[in-house]
Structure formats: C-alpha cells, structure tokens
Design a protein around this nucleic acid. Structure first.
Length: 437
RNA sequence: GUGGGCGUAGCUCAGUUGGUGGAGCACCAGGUUGUGGUCCUGGGGGUCGCGGGUUCAAGUCCCGUCGUCCACCCCA
C-alpha cells in the first residue's frame, strides 16, 4: 500500500456518511429530549482562557488540555468540558436570567489523553443543567431527562438503570462516624471503586486506609448500601444526627418524586456512586448499561458552589453529561443503533435519452417541494438506472417514458413494495408521497 | 506516564517448516436491446506500516520506530 502520509489524529474520528448518520441520530435525540423537557440550547466558544480551567482544577490539569498561545502570548485551551463555560456565561448575566435556568448543549470537546474504549481525544457531550434551583426537584428532573433519553433510544429498564446517591448524606455519615477530615478523599475514592471490584478487593482497599475498626466497618457497610435495604442501613447510621437525617429525608423525597414521574423503577439508591472528587455537593447519579460493559454511560449531580468558585454569584446548580462515544458503545451492545435510512425520496430515470430534459425539470420541481431527489448522470439502460436508484437507497423511482411526451404520464414505483402505477405529472406534484399509499 | 495485543487490497481477514501475495464484501465496466436491491463475466487496486539486520531468498525470523486497539493511572 502506498503509505498514506496523513490520517486523522490519534483519538479523533472521521465521520463517513454512515457514521455521520449515527451521530446525527444521537444528536437529534439529545435535542428532542432536551426541548420536550423544557431546556433551551446554548453554546460557547470552542476555546477559552486557560485560566478558566486552572481556577477549577489547578495547574496539573494543563497537561491534559490542548492549549496554545496567540500572538500576544495569551493562553487558551480547547474546551475539555462545558461546565466552566456555562458557569461563566450564567455568571455574566445572572441577574437578568429567569430562574430556574434550564439549558442544554452538545459541545465538541477535546482532551489530550491516551485514547481507550469510551474515551477519545475529541468527542461530543450532551450537557443538561439547571441553575438557580436549590430544591431536589431539580435533581429529580435531571434524572428524569436521563431516563427519558435512554428510553427514547429504545433501551428498556432491562437494559439500563440509574444509581443515585447523595454526597451530602455521605458527608453527614462520615462526620457522625468522626472520620478524620484528612482521609475523606481516600474514603471517597475507595467507595467510588466499590462497584468496580469484588467484595474481597474492596475489603482490602478499606483495610489499607488504616481506619479504626469501627470506621472500617462503617465503610464496608456503606459499600454494600444499595437499594431499599441500603437506605435502611443508612437510616440506622444517621439516627439521631440532625444533618444526616435531613439529608436522608431529602433523598427519600427524591425517590418519591422519581416514582411520581414514572421512572422510579429504573433508579436505585447506591452509596457506591461518589463521582470524582471535584465539585459535587449533593445528589449524584450515574447511569449504567446492564450488559457486559460495566461502565458509567452518563453521570452528574449537584454542584452548589461552582459558580462562586469561577467568580460568579452564589448560585446552585445540578446537571449531567454523557458523551456520544459511550452512548454509541452501549447502543451498539444492545443492537439499538438505527440502520442506514434511505437518503432519497425519489430517483427519476428516463426510458429514452431524449427525455432527459423532463427528468431534469421534474427532479427540480420535486426538490423544490422539499423531496430529496436524484437522477443518473449517465444516459443508460433502465436497468442500470434502477441499479443506481437502489444503490442510493431511493424510496421511489419515477420513470419518464415515451408516452410522457404526449400524455404527461409517468410511472412511479415504490421500491420497498414493488408496486408501480401510472400517473400524471401534475398529480404526482400535487401529492408526491401519497400516490402509492 | 506504565503494561499487553495487533499492523497484508477501500472494509473484514486468510497466507501452511522463510521460496518473488489470496478470498469475501465494496468499487468500476460489460452481458440479458424498458425495471433494482438477491444473476453471469471481466477489471482496477497492495514495494505485506516504515527503517535496519539475519539469509542464496523475509509478509513469514530478530531489533528499532511509527500507528492502532485494550487495560492501568487519571477522569472535568
């Protein structure tokens, strides 16, 4: 093979038409689900000041960003996530925006990571955010939107579920257990690993934290705190603790809301969901496919301090994000991706080369009526033109034939059913798609 | 940043103990002189990722390099 000098850069994808069709299908669903849940679309620049990301994550994040300087030595980075951008945008107009702010976006993001399954260096992410609403109702609505999307893709409750937890509740439990502040990050990290390892491995991770026996036991039981039984476990752990009881009541209320919205059955309490260590302050959740890929396919939660941290006004927020890469992965696993749809409504062919003018004029008219219409560039046998029509996945073929000249009649054939009828051009143009119904 | 697998036609892959490269699909062109996606025939296209080494001879063995996939780290 002639060595191709250029290929798409590591971790990026070329979207040839079949792949682009899948991407568009996912985007259309994202948008449709967002809009019907009352979210408005926004977007920002594809690069931001490097400092915007430093503020939140510190200097070490820079090595995982694609960053550059302009000719004035100003530092920028291609956006690796959307949250700083929406925080910046909302902060800038905070006083003028009606609350709650319900926004969504489908940004292209880049991260300078080593690619692996479900993680590329360039990808698209669907972001859903509600800002300016403290009530757990906003969290419930976000979880509902996630469930709504997965069902819209065709997945069932047999194929996905959503784990829900509260970091505020977890913090209260640890506070009551008198866990040392300093070891909290390690405790969070350990819990977050719970579902990725066996019970034994988890016990080992816990023992390596060198916690007092009582605290280690608490942590083990938290790791197993799932579903209604898990809530019972937690109820005992927070009994008599004011904040803990309040946070427990809050998450119980959340589940009541989810049940009322009809998605309670795909949601499950799970203390093992902690999510990163970054900025989550309250409810956190992750969606999972029930197949072989044990990987979160969507995640989010409440971030009540973030706007203030990026220099904005104190304003609460909650939301989630998921990427096109993991969505495609999980849908492929369940065979839920769509086939390649027909791209043409009509393909117009001529039975005789000197009828080509009619092919052109009829095609143009159909196109102006909004129908995707094609024709062969070459004057060749009807069979060859049919072959092209099939190849272009045309839904119908219009045959311009000898009696078209005198009688204005064409044949229209439905390629799926094989049904073919003679009709006048004028009636074809009056009701182009209903003729064969 | 660390570790492992793989790199042969546009795609998916064969290639036997080293002896001057194949299939299916796709693409293009013909055949049946007005009907396709599921017929028949033919064709184009690869210095076997790249570089070096061993050998009379390397797709095949060795080293390096680049690419890619997977896992770890990390995960906004």
């Amino acid at each position: 093979m002639q060595a191709m000098k250029f290929q798409c850069p590591r971790g990026t994808r070329d979207f040839y038409p079949p792949a682009m069709a899948v991407r568009s299908w996912i985007f259309d669903l994202w948008k449709q689900v967002s809009l019907r849940n009352g979210f408005e679309e926004y977007d920002g620049p594809i690069f931001e000041s490097l400092d915007l990301y430093r503020v939140k994550s510190g200097d070490e994040i820079v090595s995982e960003l694609f960053h550059f300087c302009d000719r004035g030595d100003r530092e920028f980075a291609i956006r690796p996530e959307m949250t700083p951008t929406i925080a910046r945008m909302v902060a800038a107009q905070a006083n003028g925006l009606a609350r709650p702010v319900k926004w969504f976006s489908m940004p292209r993001l880049c991260r300078a990571e080593r690619p692996q399954r479900g993680r590329l260096r360039e990808f698209f992410q669907w972001n859903i955010d509600i800002l300016g609403e403290d009530s757990v109702l906003a969290d419930a609505e976000c979880i509902f939107v996630a469930a709504d999307f997965f069902q819209a893709t065709g997945l069932t409750y047999e194929q996905f579920y959503i784990k829900v937890n509260s970091r505020a509740l977890l913090a209260a439990i640890l506070q009551r257990g008198e866990f040392d502040e300093a070891c909290l990050p390690a405790v969070y990290a350990a819990l977050d690993k719970r579902d990725k390892v066996s019970a034994d491995a988890f016990a080992k991770i816990v023992s390596e934290l060198n916690l007092p026996t009582e605290q280690a036991d608490t942590l083990i039981s938290l790791g197993d705190a799932k579903g209604d039984e898990g809530l019972t476990t937690v109820r005992k752990l927070v009994a008599g603790h004011e904040v803990g009881e309040a946070k427990l009541a809050e998450i119980e209320h959340l589940f009541e809301l989810l049940t009322a919205m009809g998605v309670g059955d795909c949601c499950r309490f799970d203390m093992g969901v902690v999510r990163g260590l970054a900025y989550y302050t309250g409810v956190v959740f992750e969606a999972f496919g029930k197949g072989g890929l044990q990987r979160a396919i969507c995640g989010g939660g409440r971030y009540d301090n973030l706007l203030r941290e990026v220099g904005g006004p104190p304003m609460s927020g909650t939301g989630f994000a998921t990427s096109d890469v993991v969505i495609e992965d999980v849908l492929k696993e369940f065979g839920a991706l769509p086939g390649y749809e027909p791209v043409l409504d009509f393909f117009v062919i001529d039975a005789d080369a000197d009828l080509f003018d009619t092919v052109l004029s009829l095609s143009a008219k159909l196109r102006r009526l909004g129908f995707a219409t094609g024709f062969s560039y070459k004057r060749q046998a009807v069979g060859k033109q049919f072959k092209q029509a099939a190849n272009k996945r045309a839904a119908r073929v219009v045959i311009v034939e000898t009696n078209t000249r005198e009688a204005d009649i064409v044949s229209v054939k439905d390629m799926a059913t094989g049904v073919q009828k003679n009709i006048s051009i004028s009636s074809l143009l009056n009701a182009p798609t209903q003729l064969l119904a």
